[in-house]
Design a binder for these strands. Structure first.
Length: 806
RNA sequence: GGGGGCAUAGCCGAAUUGGCACAGGCGCAUGGUUUAGGCCCAUGUGGAGCAAUCCGUGGGAGUUCGAAUCUCCCUGCCCCCACCA
């Protein structure tokens, strides 16, 4: 006698579609609550079974908060610009617009199939001109505030396709499409100055409620380090500036290393005697990623610049200059002073190259490895005026000395790099900048936004590494807004991170055409109260959107310093074997199949019951059945008209009810959906044992409704309680009714469990101890012993410490 | 290499945050119900032992009356690393 989930679920989804019970009201007097899920990228594969995990979780939260009297904004949209859509379009000769529309339609019907209480009137699509307009508008504001600039950056370049590749398209150093060699190539790129916000992005984490691992990851990613920049004079008369976190070890700098891309090499190529080997090395380095280059394990390589040497500003000694790929052009100044005695990478390089290793900090054994400790027993030696100082004292002393002699400055450095904002692709927002031969980079007039993508024949990037837009001459050629002369449009597009950096603001007022959202809506809804998303977005999307928000705050568009008040994160859903789901492994679960076979309510319930929400969990077909059984059991118990009579076990039912109300309510707020469902299952087991009446079922259905809304509404209607379950108030509980009269307490002797005693709840400690000592088993242990100490943990445990009588 | 995290039953996982290890589910076993299968219901289910008991949270040490939980060392696994989103 199982229920017809397909019919019931369709029925309620239709009702929700027509009556819109989940629409948010801007300006309502109720307290507002804004939960947010990361909007999906509408890929051609459709919804993945990983999507419902965060979506169901936040739907449960949203539904519960509505029942608690909140005005809830629970929106959804589509992050629809991106590479896979473009590649699909190229392959199938379709317009990316058509592909996107098809995919969004598919995602929409799948999301509706799962019964989410989204406000469908606020759907956002980042590729829609009315949305793109404001993404471009924000970019223009950044440009006007000197946060957007052009610079030369290395890109992945396939030497055979002659196009720029995304990191993802580079597989094992080769082009994913043709297998050709991929090298780093310098290309002029638009950048956003996120590093100007580095300090605030760290500091303001104190004002938000993010789970610790998100905070830690962002802080480490931004990578603040304090040290100094020091100038080294070269024999060529140039000065190379290096960044170091250990200025105290300057006397131990026995050589210098600059990155293979350093501009000095070209500038002083005439002074270099071994040009051929330097060029070879540069070519080899260009093939490697930063990731490969900084691997500590690998053998260090490098080439000395013959004919050039530097002077150590502290010791005055001549030291050689190398190029090596373990120094990155993009971090610090692209050059380092090498202190092999006290930096492990320098130590390995020095061993490799047979360079002298000098000890300037005592405390380790530099014959075996570099000694990099900053502890108090690390003391400076061989370092002139620093001798005898602890590292912590020597650092400020050296900085003072550098400042006084004009040789360096104190410097805070960040690992965070500015954001490469250009893509040589078609399916993204065009960057609304015009290149004028006489005026330079000129922003488009805001009134002319949005700048739409032109229709093109082919979406392939060109073989010069330009975006396909470059070939549309009627689109590229334009007049300069400033001088009216002939000019050209920027042909690079924005990365898809652009649209996702501010979408939560658009939801607040999704159809506004005078601003990205009205002031009124922004002030009413900000900030997002609870944002749940994947850990993989911590250092990219989440950081980018915090940066954009802070910029919008600075220019007066938004009224809060941070966009998201609370951030939580869910674990991945893995395949049955515990491996990541992927098409190539063939272990992908399609939510449609599960809904067909068991229904949306079962899928929702299972995906929340699968395990700890914050951890990865493997899918199990069998375990899904357990959740279906639970709902079948609910149905059997509740689809017949129940009586109003109290059962003889009503006291037990009442206690189960109050406990479950407490547990489910608390668990939902603390992401423990799995134990909330376990509590509902236990409650149902109690009811089926004791019998259930109409009033008891009513509360049960209200508790169940956020998790399995369709079956809850159907049974609600069958019982004729009036209105809908979703409109009910969240039930409250009475603490005193959750408690037992008697408690079974553990009795330990010397910390080992020996027996139990059952006592009235909250019995005083001395009663507990005397009852324990009266216990026959404990008496046996206590024979010939004296009680040294007793420990009582209220309602839980009595521990008696015994020693032999003397 | 850097960063973040994880390890409890045959499997997924609980454990009031230092207090009776294993709630709930899956699976399995036995019995019942059913024309049969499925469904459903009941009971049992960490290991060893006839038992009293003993052992048990990846491995090792430590702190404590008491450790899955805290500290240190070791091992194994997963995720992210800036142009996938």
């Amino acid at each position: 006698m199982n229920y017809d989930y397909l019919k019931i679920e369709k029925k309620w989804q239709k009702i929700w579609e027509e009556t819109k019970p989940f629409a948010a009201v801007t300006g309502s007097d109720k307290p507002k609550f804004y939960p947010l899920v990361e909007f999906p990228y509408p890929s051609g594969d459709g919804l993945h079974v990983g999507h419902p995990r965060p979506y169901t979780a936040m739907d449960i939260v949203a539904r519960k908060r509505r029942m608690q009297g909140y005005n809830v904004l629970f929106p959804i949209g589509f992050d629809a610009f991106g590479l896979p859509t473009e590649n699909y379009a190229i392959k199938n000769h379709m317009h990316p617009r058509a592909v996107t529309n098809k995919n969004i339609a598919g995602f929409t019907s799948q999301l509706k199939m799962l019964g989410y209480s989204f406000d469908w009137d606020r759907v956002v699509d980042t590729t829609d001109p009315s949305y793109m307009r404001w993404t471009q508008w924000i970019f223009l504001q950044m440009f006007k505030h000197d946060l957007a600039y052009k610079t030369s950056m290395p890109v992945n370049w396939c030497t055979s396709c002659k196009i720029v590749l995304a990191n993802e398209e580079v597989v094992g150093g080769a082009c994913e499409r043709c297998g050709g060699e991929v090298v780093k190539k310098e290309k002029s790129q638009w950048m956003l100055g996120i590093t100007k916000y580095a300090e605030r992005l760290i500091e303001d984490l104190d004002t938000v409620d993010y789970i610790d691992r998100v905070k830690a990851q962002q802080i480490n990613w931004i990578g603040k380090s304090t040290g100094a920049e020091v100038d080294f004079k070269l024999s060529t008369g140039d000065v190379i500036r290096v960044f170091t976190t250990r200025p105290d070890t300057l006397f131990g700098a026995t050589y210098m290393v600059i990155s293979p891309e350093h501009s000095l090499i070209n500038e002083r190529i005439d002074s270099i005697k071994n040009v051929a080997s330097v060029r070879d090395y540069q070519h080899e380095a260009a093939k490697k990623s930063d990731f490969e280059r900084t691997e500590l394990q690998k053998e260090k390589t490098g080439v000395m610049l013959e004919g050039i040497h530097a002077i150590n500003p502290a010791s005055g000694k001549e030291i050689p200059v190398f190029i090596s790929d373990y120094v990155l052009a993009t971090y610090g100044t692209g050059a380092i002073m090498a202190v092999p005695g006290h930096d492990q990478r320098d130590w390995e390089f020095a061993k490799q190259m047979n360079l002298p290793i000098v000890e300037v900090v005592q405390g380790g054994d530099i014959e075996k490895e570099a000694y990099s400790s900053k502890d108090d027993d690390a003391v400076l030696v061989n370092s002139g005026f620093l001798n005898g100082l602890k590292v912590k004292e020597a650092i400020p002393q050296m900085i003072d000395w550098l400042k006084q002699n004009g040789l360096g400055i104190e410097k805070v450095n960040y690992k965070l790099r500015d954001w490469v904002f250009s893509r040589q692709r078609y399916w993204g927002e065009p960057i609304p900048i015009i290149h004028c031969p006489s005026c330079g980079y000129v922003p488009m007039d805001e009134a002319d936004l949005p700048l739409l993508l032109p229709d093109v024949e082919s979406y392939e990037p060109t073989d010069t590494g330009e975006s396909p837009l470059a070939q549309i001459h009627e689109w590229v050629n334009c007049k300069c807004p400033k001088c009216g002369g002939d000019a050209k449009r920027e042909t690079d597009t924005m990365p898809n991170w652009a649209g996702s950096s501010w979408y939560y603001l658009r939801y607040m007022d999704a159809h506004c055409d005078t601003a990205l959202a009205s002031k009124e809506a922004i002030h009413y809804w900000s900030p997002v109260d609870w944002y749940n998303g994947g850990m993989e977005h911590t250092t990219l999307h989440l950081l980018y959107s915090r940066f954009w928000h802070k910029f919008l705050y600075d220019i007066g568009v938004v009224n809060t310093v941070e966009p998201y008040q609370r951030r939580t994160s869910h674990g991945m859903i893995l395949g049955e074997g515990g491996e990541k789901m992927s098409k190539s492994r063939g272990n992908v679960i399609n939510p449609n199949d599960i809904v067909d076979q068991y229904g949306a309510d079962t899928l929702r319930l299972y995906i929340m019951f699968i395990g700890d929400f914050e951890k990865a969990a493997p899918w199990s077909d069998n375990a899904v059945k357990g959740c279906k059984r639970f709902l079948d059991k609910v149905w059997r118990l509740a689809h017949v008209k129940l009586s109003d009579e109290m059962s003889e076990y009503s006291e037990r039912n009442e206690r189960a009810l109050h406990r479950t109300i407490k547990k489910v309510g608390e668990d939902i707020e603390s992401l423990k959906f799995n134990t909330a469902i376990a509590a509902l299952m236990a409650m149902l087991n109690e009811f089926s044992e004791n019998g259930i009446n109409r009033a008891e079922l009513k509360d049960f259905l209200v508790l169940l409704s956020p998790f399995a809304p369709h079956i809850a509404e159907e049974l609600w209607e069958i019982q004729g309680y009036g209105n809908t379950a979703a409109e009910q108030s969240w039930p409250s509980y009475d603490e005193s009714k959750t408690l037992d009269d008697m408690k079974e307490m553990a009795v330990q002797v010397n910390g080992k469990l020996r027996s139990t005693v059952t006592l009235p709840t909250d019995s005083p400690d001395d009663v507990c101890v005397s009852e324990a000592l009266n216990n026959p088993k404990i008496k046996k242990y206590a024979e010939g012993m004296q009680v040294v100490k007793t420990i009582v943990v209220k309602n839980k445990l009595i521990n008696i410490i015994l020693r032999p009588n003397k």
